[in-house]
């Protein structure tokens, strides 16, 4: 009994330390963001919330020149949302269609093509970033949402997940649908898509977070402030801090950081159930 208690205590202690380790920086960032710039400059990082919460966040979100030279926090939030959602939706659509072709159409190159797609998993965006930039620039899509999203949406991971899922769908469903007069498109939209609902939800969520956190590509792609995403905004504001100059606006930098972490957290919290279901569900 005693030994068991010890175990319980030690495992909990480790977990608690872990939780603190992970969440303390976030808390400090939040607490600091609620103090005034002078206070921070004089006293350093803050562990308890101050009185400037409303003022700081109002400045960051709604005041022209409050955080960047011109762009508002809300605009960056909007850009990030567009990137996150467009990225996730685009990836799901492209990878479902690719997986559908690979699993259900017996063309000769299906297997090699799948492995080619699969191998691109090994090549991160960074490897092809120069050619991608060239192409997008050539198309005149720099500083546009389309140019930002499209080069990112091809997805080996998504294709792989959907392929595995489609292969687990019984063949008889396809056969029944064929006898029922369903076309290739009809089978996809009436049967496969509804069956993949939870899977789609899970991938949407993961990909939203990944898209939201995209850094290098948006950094290269966007030159105008009005196209900044939150992540780029953070990068810029810390750069300004590092360069020095007038009174450093640490609280605004921290506020922007907190704002950037909120939406992914909210998405995961709200859709947690779907997310788990999509990843573990096997019974169709």
């Amino acid at each position: 009994m005693k030994q068991w208690n010890w175990r319980l205590i030690s495992t909990h202690a480790i977990l608690i330390v872990g939780v603190c380790f992970m969440s303390l920086p976030v808390w400090v960032a939040f607490a600091t963001s609620t103090h005034s710039a002078e206070h921070i400059l004089r006293n350093g990082l803050q562990f308890w919330p101050g009185s400037d919460f409303v003022e700081t966040y109002r400045q960051v979100l709604f005041v022209d020149g409050g955080v960047m030279k011109s762009v508002l926090g809300t605009t960056m939030l909007k850009n990030s949302l567009i990137l996150g959602i467009g990225f996730a939706v685009g990836k799901v659509i492209i990878s479902m269609l690719a997986a559908y072709a690979i699993v259900y159409f017996r063309f000769k190159l299906a297997v090699p093509l799948f492995w080619v797609i699969f191998m691109t998993l090994l090549l991160p965006l960074e490897v092809r970033i120069i050619p991608s930039y060239e192409v997008v620039a050539g198309l005149g899509l720099l500083d546009t949402h389309v140019g930002l999203i499209v080069p990112l949406i091809a997805s080996a991971t998504g294709t792989f997940f959907f392929r595995q899922f489609f292969r687990s769908v019984p063949d008889e469903l396809l056969e029944a649908a064929r006898l029922d007069g369903a076309t290739a498109w009809g089978f996809f939209k009436d049967i496969l898509v509804p069956l993949s609902k939870t899977m789609i939800a899970a991938i949407l969520i993961i990909m939203f977070v990944v898209g939201w956190n995209q850094y290098l590509w948006p950094l290269i792609m966007t030159t105008k402030e009005e196209n900044y995403t939150l992540v780029i905004g953070i990068k810029q504001i810390y750069q300004i801090l590092a360069e020095g100059g007038e009174l450093p606006q640490y609280q605004k930098a921290f506020a922007l950081t907190i704002l950037a972490t909120l939406p992914p957290v909210l998405v995961v919290l709200v859709f947690q159930n779907w997310f788990v279901k999509g990843l573990v569900e096997s019974e169709k």
Binding site: P170, E172, A176, A177, I191, P194, K197, K284
Partner: peptide
């Protein structure tokens, strides 16, 4: 079909 092959959704 033997396993019915009903559309589950």
């Amino acid at each position: 079909f033997q396993n019915y092959a009903l559309y589950p959704h």
